[in-house]
């Protein structure tokens, strides 16, 4: 049975491909996950210059209420900025910010098909032989993101550029405000962590960097040889301190219980790969601050997902699971980073 979005999406794309005839969308199916955007894969077929063509594409559409509220243009432009660089990303095709075509804003992108993203599969044992290679690639790519010049990448037109000494307070203010708004029950460890972060601010950023915002195992596409073919989920991308992304990648939640950072390697190995690629230094004291901050940020996301469910804005099970599974685990992660556990 055809998905109800297929005809509407085909009509939209036909309007963007003036040289194409017979534009058709088939095999549209929703991909699991996608708590901040509804993600679908589909096959686009059309005729152009007398030749029949096909392409596998991705549709990312805003949901009624999201785990993370962000502008889809920011995500779209972030992908475009890194296209053709040392950071592998899919090609962006069309961005639609109005709601008429598919009820909510969306964008369409190339599907990088044939690779895995699942952390569970990666850490199942089947990939153990290539985990060191994936680890080096993962933090090398993150170093490349940190090294990039946001202005040269064209991103300063779409993202605020905070002063170097205000990167930390801007982010902490943002996530603390979301926790104030969304927490459904008191979070004593999170509140203690926020007090510690404010009492012990980090030094100014070494440079203004592109911050992916959700760079973790699970948000890149890998293969059995240990190569990484695509970095995904740029919806929280912004400009800030390069240590912010490194801290998110190292925060204990993303160990998936393995005891290794990102489930992949030691922290020292990850930091060494990042430093080699970025040409930057990860001062241990500053990195501790950013790792703990990212525990607070994670908590902001998990309590936000519970709030979206409780308000009725989004009743999907994906909104419940992070809240049930991760809120207490995130407090334990904070205790660990603070040396209390």
């Amino acid at each position: 049975m055809a998905h109800p979005l297929e005809g509407r999406l085909a009509a939209y794309i036909a309007g963007r491909m003036p040289l194409a005839t017979g534009v058709a969308v088939t095999d549209l199916e929703r991909i699991s996950g996608g708590a901040s955007r509804e993600t679908y894969r589909f096959r686009l077929a059309w005729t152009e210059g007398g030749e029949a063509r096909q392409r596998k594409l991705i549709l990312r559409r805003d949901p009624p209420a999201s785990l993370i509220d962000t502008e889809r243009r920011v995500e779209f432009e972030a992908y475009r900025a890194f296209r053709g660089s040392a950071v592998p990303v899919p090609e962006m095709l069309w961005l639609e910010e109005a709601s008429e075509a598919l009820d909510h804003p969306f964008f369409v992108a190339e599907e990088i098909a044939g690779f895995q993203a699942s952390p569970q599969v990666l850490l199942s044992g089947a990939y153990d032989a290539v985990l060191p290679k994936i680890a080096t690639r993962k933090w090398t790519i993150l170093g490349e993101i940190a090294k990039a010049d946001p202005a040269a990448a064209g991103l300063t037109s779409f993202m605020d550029a905070p002063p170097l000494d205000a990167c930390w307070s801007r982010e902490l203010d943002h996530w603390e405000a979301l926790i104030d708004r969304d927490e459904a029950e008191p979070l004593p460890v999170t509140r203690a962590a926020i007090r510690w972060l404010r009492a012990n601010p980090p030094p100014p950023a070494q440079k203004l960097s592109v911050v992916h915002g959700d760079y973790r195992t699970g948000n890149f596409l890998y293969d059995e040889a240990g190569d990484i073919h695509g970095v995904l989920d740029w919806e929280m991308c912004h400009l800030g301190d390069p240590l912010e992304d490194l801290g998110w990648s190292l925060q204990p939640i993303w160990s998936f219980g393995s005891g290794r950072v990102g489930g992949l390697c030691t922290e020292a190995e990850a930091v060494a790969a990042w430093e080699a690629a970025s040409g930057l230094k990860a001062d241990p004291t500053a990195l501790k601050w950013w790792t703990l901050f990212n525990c607070v940020k994670g908590q902001g996301i998990w309590v936000g997902s519970a709030a979206a469910f409780n308000s009725g804005g989004n009743r999907a099970p994906i909104m419940i699971y992070p809240a049930w599974w991760l809120i207490n685990a995130q407090e334990r992660a904070m205790l660990k980073v603070m040396g209390k556990l």
Binding site: P188, V189, A192, P252, I253, W254, S255, F256, G257, W324, W325, L326, N328, A329, Q330, E331, R332, A333, L335, K336, K340, L341
Partner: peptide, 15 residues
């Protein structure tokens, strides 16, 4: 606070 997070810990929790 440490004891509380231990009480609440799920068997499948990552931390």
């Amino acid at each position: 606070l440490v004891a509380a997070t231990d009480r609440r810990r799920l068997s499948t929790a990552p931390v």
